[in-house]
């Protein structure tokens, strides 16, 4: 019995994530971003994603702050000056609003990608990319596996480089010069590069010796297309149509230069926002309904 969205057929899962990520990325309307961000946070809360908040603080927030800073530093368009640091260096409402939009967009897309990577493991990707795309599927899977492996190995190399020769008396690490730090960093990168090449050779041997290059691979899976997937896919298709109409109509096309100009609110734009909201809430609703059903089933035992 499918009680969670991640247990749905891979095609249905992939259809959702593509729609959700693409429409979040191409919209320029702050309301779409707020809806998308809130829905992604809700989805992670319902799924009790471990370390979601630390991921937000450690990964998303620093990138948001850096992007904001760079944007404010180089962009001075717009007519509504909020304050001026020196002549010609104006911080405008238009730039700040554009900044906020970018941050919301980045945060929500990152959270949706995290949900995507938690949901779409090797089996689902292999299934989606079976046949002539199987090599691409394999590259994607290995890339997803290698990233955390690279991070942990880089930390190990860093400690080994320091541990090879530790000077205690004058060896306070905080006093290392910039040159020493640069040298250490370059050593870590070089070592990581060599290690990754070496590891990939062994992985390639493992793939070869188990016949990855043989033609006509089968895919071992137990995915089934049920009535739920049909309903979901019909809903996604209807939403896709509504979103395309809204996009062509310009419902999400907010201008930030020279002044902030929102599109006219009409039936098409309202239906665009509502349909987008329904789209991004579908996985959370499915998971919440699954949780209630689980409790009901358990209470009968």
């Amino acid at each position: 019995m499918k009680l969670r969205f991640k247990e749905y057929h891979p095609l249905c899962d992939a259809f959702f994530y593509i729609l959700c990520i693409v429409f979040t990325a191409i919209s320029r309307h702050p309301l779409t971003m707020v809806i998308s961000l809130c829905a992604s946070i809700l989805f992670h809360i319902i799924n009790r994603t471990e370390k979601m908040f630390s991921f937000f603080l450690k990964v998303i927030l620093p990138i948001i702050l850096i992007t904001t800073f760079i944007n404010l530093l180089f962009n001075h368009y717009g007519v509504t000056v909020l304050f001026s640091l020196r002549p010609g260096f104006n911080v405008t409402l238009e730039v700040v609003m554009q900044d906020i939009l970018l941050c919301l967009c980045f945060a929500s897309i990152t959270l949706w990608f995290k949900a995507f990577s938690d949901s779409m493991g090797f089996r689902k990707l292999s299934f989606l990319f079976s046949g002539w795309l199987s090599s691409i599927g394999m590259i994607l899977v290995l890339a997803m596996r290698f990233i955390p492996a690279y991070i942990s190995h880089a930390l190990l190399i860093g400690s080994s480089v320091r541990g090879e020769y530790m000077v205690y008396r004058a060896g306070d690490k905080s006093k290392r010069s910039l040159k020493e730090r640069f040298h250490e960093g370059s050593s870590i990168l070089a070592s990581l590069f060599d290690w990754s090449l070496e590891s990939s050779i062994e992985t390639a041997d493992s793939l070869n010796s188990r016949g990855f290059s043989l033609k006509g691979r089968t895919i071992y899976h137990d995915y089934s297309w049920t009535f739920r997937e049909t309903i979901c896919s019909i809903s996604f298709t209807l939403i896709l149509v509504l979103q395309i109409i809204s996009l062509i109509h310009g419902s999400f096309d907010v201008r930030y230069n020279p002044v902030i100009k929102f599109p006219v609110t009409d039936v098409v734009s309202v239906s665009g926002f509502i349909s987008f909201g329904v789209l991004v809430l579908i996985p959370s609703l499915i998971d919440a309904a699954g949780a209630i059903k689980w409790k009901r089933l358990m209470s009968r035992l």
């Binding site: 394999m138 290995l142 793939l207 016949g211």
Partner: peptide
């Protein structure tokens, strides 16, 4: 480095999938 998939079951199935 010999592992190419996510779960143990998928890993065991890998070679057999190659053998169709």
């Amino acid at each position: 480095n010999q592992i190419v998939t996510d779960t143990v079951e998928e890993e065991m199935a890998f070679g057999l999938e190659s053998l169709r």
